[in-house]
């Protein structure tokens, strides 16, 4: 094994890792805003991918338009999810265990909905990025890697700008830090949380669109991605923006290397093992300060 091979694998892993970072980021945003760990985030990504499939392959809508429509539609879905489902529960201070079970149910529901509508046969969406790899030294880079990394980077920069520089973004961060205080300051918590769901779901859907270019879609894909997204968010640090990104890339790269050099069959076992080790020995992840409970 040469360093070149390692770099080659890392490059391959970056693309998939960048995609994992998107639902991971969604999980973090929702956790911050609503104290809720959304197990269904990766399934929302899969749903986004299937919507893309329906628009591009079945409805034959041009790729860019389909991309935009998918993101908007999924964002609205996230908004609705919050308004009619999760926010009423949060507002009534339902036991967090119950809301958590709700997100698990949502995850299973989406998976089986996809199964009933599209069946188990893998579906492919055209790869709009082309198949001609270009060479950098000894390393071959597929065009989709560059595109995915570029799109995710732009998306994250926009998101950062939105959260830091706009009034609504500041409001969202305020809700994340101090629900009651921000409510007293006249910020509508329900809207801010719904907006967080909207953003998170739209981001997940973007991840779905990107992944549809690379992998054939199956309804159960959500479970597989959920593992990676949860690993990313927990390794990086739940609630941290950079944590989700770093975690996603770390998971993407390490799983690609593991699958190639060790054994692809045990790829998920490897990720889980790393995840559980992190949870037990470094529960805050890489990017999180320890917060002790107020007694």
């Amino acid at each position: 094994m040469t360093p070149a091979i390692l770099i080659q694998l890392a490059v391959n892993g970056i693309a998939i890792g960048a995609i994992y970072a998107l639902p991971a980021l969604g999980i973090s945003l929702i956790w911050n805003a609503a104290g809720l760990f959304n197990f269904a985030q990766a399934d929302l990504l899969t749903l986004g991918a299937y919507v893309m499939y329906a628009l591009v392959v079945s409805a034959k809508i041009p790729y860019i338009w389909a991309f935009i429509i998918t993101t908007i539609v999924m964002g609205l879905l996230g908004y609705l999810l919050s308004r009619i489902y999760f926010y009423p529960m949060i507002e009534n201070r339902v036991n967090p265990h119950i809301v958590l079970i709700g997100t698990v149910a949502l995850s299973v529901f989406i998976q089986n909905l996809l199964l009933v509508i599209w069946g188990t046969t893998p579906k492919s969406v055209v790869n709009p990025f082309g198949y001609m790899p270009f060479r950098v030294g000894d390393i071959f880079v597929m065009p989709h890697v560059v595109w995915i990394v570029a799109i995710v980077s732009v998306l994250l920069l926009l998101l950062q700008f939105f959260l830091r520089r706009t009034l609504i973004g500041t409001g969202m961060r305020a809700v994340a830090q101090q629900q009651i205080a921000s409510w007293l300051m006249g910020i509508r918590n329900d809207r801010m949380i719904a907006l967080t769901f909207l953003l998170s779901t739209a981001i997940a859907a973007t991840g779905g669109v990107l992944i549809s270019a690379v992998f054939p879609l199956t309804p159960r894909m959500g479970s597989m991605i959920a593992v990676k997204a949860m690993a990313a968010v927990l390794i990086g640090g739940l609630g941290s923006f950079s944590g989700a990104l770093v975690g996603g890339l770390a998971v993407g790269i390490s799983e690609t290397i593991f699958a190639t050099l060790v054994n692809p069959a045990y790829r998920d076992v490897f990720i889980f093992a790393v995840l559980i080790t992190f949870l037990i020995f470094k529960p805050g992840g890489i990017f999180k300060a320890e917060i002790s409970e107020k007694v």
């Binding site: 197990f39 949860m230 076992v269 995840l275 949870l279």
Partner: peptide
């Protein structure tokens, strides 16, 4: 909470 749930999912999948 969710952290334990994730661990148990991982355990079951392993």
């Amino acid at each position: 909470g969710p952290f334990l749930a994730v661990t148990t999912i991982g355990f079951g999948e392993i």
